[in-house]
C-alpha cells in the first residue's frame, strides 16, 4: 500500500483519530490520516486495531489509547506519548468536547490556540472584551529536556473569568505544546484557585490543508454538566473556525518573510522555530534557508 505523504517527521508521529467516548466496541470506523484512508476498531477498553482501508492484507498500524483518545501512526512512532498527568487525577472531569473539520493546516490550528491577542475580537464578551486588549509580557522557552514549547506567566483580562464573578479580572494561563500538532492550556480553576483547569486541542491532519480538531477539557469543576462544558467549548471553537479558514496561506509559514510578528506572538515564534528545527515539511511553508 502506497502512502502519499513522504515527510518522515510527520509520518513517525502518533496522531489522534477519535475520542473514546463516541466509539462502540467492535465497530469499524473510517477516517483519513495524512491523505490515507484508514480504518480502526475498538476491541476492548485497552485495545484498538487500525489498518489502511485499501490494504487487502490488512497490515496492522501502530496504535495506542491515551488520554481518552485513539492514536495511530503511519510510520515508526516513539515509544511514549507526551505527559499529561492531570488527565489521571481522580477528582477531575475529563470531557471530550467534540471534533470539528477545519479547512486549514494543523500548524495554523495549534498556533491560534496559543494566541491570546484575538480574545477581545473573536471571543468578544467571553474570553476578552475591548478595550482590554493588552497582551502583557510573558515567558516562552523551548524546553530541550521535555522537547516542548512552554509559555508561562501569561495573563489576560477576561470579562467573566468565573461563573460566579460579575467583574472582569486578569486570568493566568500556561501553554504547552508537547507534540507538533497538540497543545494544552492551563488556566486558573474558578473553583479552586490553587489548581489549574486544562483545555486541550489534538489535531489530526487529514491533509496539508484539512484537519480534524479534537477538543477536550479536564476540569476540577463538579458543578457544570458535561453538556454545558461541551457547549461552551463548541461556541469558542466555532468562533475560531472561520478565522482559521480565512488565513492565507493555509499552510503555516515557517519562512519569516511572510508575516509580521509582534511581542505578543512570542509563543507562536517559538513554535514555528521548534517546527523548523525538527525539519517538518508537511503542512508548512519551510523557511527559505
Amino acid at each position: 500500500m502506497e502512502i502519499s505523504c513522504k515527510d518522515p517527521v510527520i509520518l513517525n508521529q502518533w496522531h489522534p483519530v477519535s475520542s473514546l467516548d463516541v466509539l462502540t466496541m467492535d465497530t469499524v470506523e473510517n477516517t483519513i490520516l495524512l491523505e490515507s484512508k484508514i480504518s480502526f476498531q475498538l476491541n476492548s477498553k485497552e485495545e484498538v486495531t487500525a489498518w489502511l482501508s485499501l490494504d487487502d492484507e490488512k497490515t496492522l498500524l501502530p496504535t495506542r489509547i491515551s488520554y481518552g483518545f485513539i492514536w495511530v501512526s503511519l510510520g515508526n512512532p516513539p515509544k511514549d506519548l507526551f505527559l499529561f498527568p492531570e488527565f489521571s487525577e481522580s477528582d477531575r472531569q475529563n470531557v471530550a468536547t467534540g471534533v470539528f473539520g477545519v479547512n486549514v493546516s494543523a500548524g495554523r490550528t495549534v498556533e491560534n490556540f496559543l494566541d491570546m491577542g484575538h480574545f477581545p475580537y473573536v471571543h468578544s464578551g467571553i474570553l476578552g472584551e475591548e478595550p482590554h486588549t493588552e497582551v502583557k509580557e510573558y515567558d516562552v522557552e523551548i524546553s530541550e529536556e521535555r522537547d516542548e514549547v512552554l509559555a508561562t506567566s501569561c495573563k489576560f483580562y477576561q470579562p467573566q473569568a468565573a461563573v460566579n464573578s460579575n467583574e472582569g479580572m486578569d486570568v493566568d494561563y500556561i501553554y504547552r505544546v508537547p507534540h507538533i500538532n497538540c497543545a494544552l492550556l492551563y488556566k486558573t480553576s474558578p473553583v479552586d484557585d490553587a489548581r489549574l483547569d486544562v483545555i486541550i486541542i489534538f489535531v489530526q491532519p487529514m491533509g496539508e490543508e484539512w484537519v480534524r480538531a479534537h477538543t477536550g477539557m479536564c476540569l476540577i469543576d463538579d458543578e457544570s454538566t458535561a453538556e454545558q462544558i461541551r457547549q461552551f467549548q463548541q461556541t469558542i471553537f466555532g468562533q475560531d473556525k472561520p478565522i482559521l479558514e480565512n488565513q492565507y496561506p493555509k499552510q503555516l509559514p515557517l519562512d519569516s518573510r511572510i508575516e509580521t510578528p509582534i511581542r505578543a506572538d512570542k509563543s507562536a515564534i517559538a513554535y514555528r522555530r521548534w517546527l523548523s528545527q525538527k525539519g517538518l515539511q508537511y503542512g508548512v511553508i519551510p523557511s527559505a534557508i
Binding site: 486588549t133 472561520p242 508575516e259
Partner: peptide, 25 residues
C-alpha cells in the same frame, strides 16, 4: 491578507477611514 497573521481583509471592517482586521483588531 493582513500582514500580521494572514487573515483575509475582506472579512474585516471598513470603518470609513481605516480598515480593521477581524483577528486581532
Amino acid at each position: 491578507r493582513c500582514l500580521h497573521r494572514g487573515v483575509r481583509l475582506t472579512i474585516g471592517i471598513n470603518e470609513g477611514t481605516e480598515l480593521r482586521c477581524q483577528y486581532h483588531g
